[in-house]
Simulated assay, not measured.
Amino acid sequence: MPVTRSKSVGNTSALTSQLGIVRLLEVLFTCVTFSLVVHIDRWHTRNGDWCMFSWCASFAITIVILVVEFAGLQHRMPVSWKNFPITFAMYATLMCLSASIIYPVSFIQNQNPSRRERPYLISATVFSCLSFLAYSTEVGITKAKPGEVTGYMATVPGLLKVVETFIACIIFVFISDPVSYDSPEGLQWCMAVYCICFILSLLVIILCIGECTGWLPCPFNKFLSGYTLLAVLMYATATIIWPIYKFDSKHGGSSSRPRYCSSTTMCHWDKLVAIAVLTAINLLVYVADLVYSARLIFIQG
């Protein structure tokens, strides 16, 4: 009798490889995290909404990536599969990191949970931290190695673009609640800096994921160097101007924390400090991006 062989269904290496196992852990950790939070119903605030969005979005998109790779549908997807997974993994890393900080501060430190709720809150925080570690491990596994030919988003400059846009989003949250850039004109310039640089960095990410870099009227590497140099100069001005108008008494600012600010919650002055710090951090990120982009144009030019 003829021997019948069972055909393997799907690409099992997508689940059993080192990267596949890490992604399965990501799914497990994020699922446990938001399940614990939903079980005790402790997330109905703006901070809680962000944390829940971070865990649920990371969980859902990771599932999609696993299904696509298991079914071998990478070439049928309308995005560059060399750029999309690592771009998402980097965003998920930053989102889970922020959620791992925001959630315990908002729901454990600043509130008084009951004895029944506290173990769930602590467990959710632990699994959120594990989710962050899992996604950062994926980034470490999939980022470009020296001499490796891969997508731009897998390189250091590509990953820095993700960091730049994420930090800008945090700045937007702080600067708009309450509005802190309406006057004078120097603060409006700072807001313009954040918006222009965010849009350009996001444009680069979209062009890479959509494999549309050929649409640019100039070589991609030269565009990157030119725009990154512009971003460094613009952020340098914002790093100087923002503290002058917000913390110098000569320009109506306050150099010390007002007495009306609570010791347990973030007040308006704290947000102004956070914006100044984040602006300086993003300046350093853009400087590092410029160095790598200049090296790229030197090697390929």
Results as ranks from 00 to 15, higher is better:
V37H: 01
C56F: 08
Q74H: 04
A92D: 10
L28M: 11
V64G: 08
N11V: 06
G48F: 11
Y91H: 14
T33E: 07
V68Y: 06
Q18M: 12
V79L: 15
V37L: 12
D41M: 03
W55F: 07
R23G: 07
I21H: 07
G72L: 13
W81G: 09
S54N: 13
T30P: 00
G48D: 12
M52Q: 01
L24F: 08
I61Y: 08
I86H: 11
S13W: 13
F84Y: 14
Y91P: 01
I40F: 04
F29Q: 13
T12I: 11
V79G: 06
L25I: 07
Q74K: 13
F29G: 05
F34C: 08
W81D: 06
W55T: 04
L97D: 04
A14F: 12
L73P: 08
M52G: 03
G48K: 06
F59R: 05
A89R: 09
V38K: 06
I61T: 07
C51Y: 09
T45M: 11
R46T: 15
R23E: 11
M77Q: 14
V37N: 00
N47Q: 15
G48E: 06
C96W: 00
I65E: 15
V9D: 00
S58G: 09
L36E: 02
S17L: 03
I86R: 12
T62Y: 02
V27R: 02
V68L: 14
C96K: 03
T45V: 13
Y91Q: 01
F59Q: 04
S17C: 10
N83D: 14
F70W: 15
K82E: 14
A57E: 08
T45P: 12
V64E: 00
F59G: 04
H39R: 06
F34E: 05
H44D: 15
L15Y: 05
G10M: 10
S54K: 01
W55K: 00
R23M: 11
T93S: 14
C51Q: 02
R42I: 10
T93R: 01
C96E: 01
F88S: 10
V37R: 05
L73I: 09
P85N: 00
L15E: 11
S58H: 01
C96T: 12
H75A: 12
T30D: 03
T30F: 02
E69A: 14
L24M: 11
L28D: 05
T93M: 05
C31Y: 13
V27L: 13
V32T: 14
M77A: 12
S54V: 01
E26C: 13
A71R: 04
S58T: 08
L73R: 13
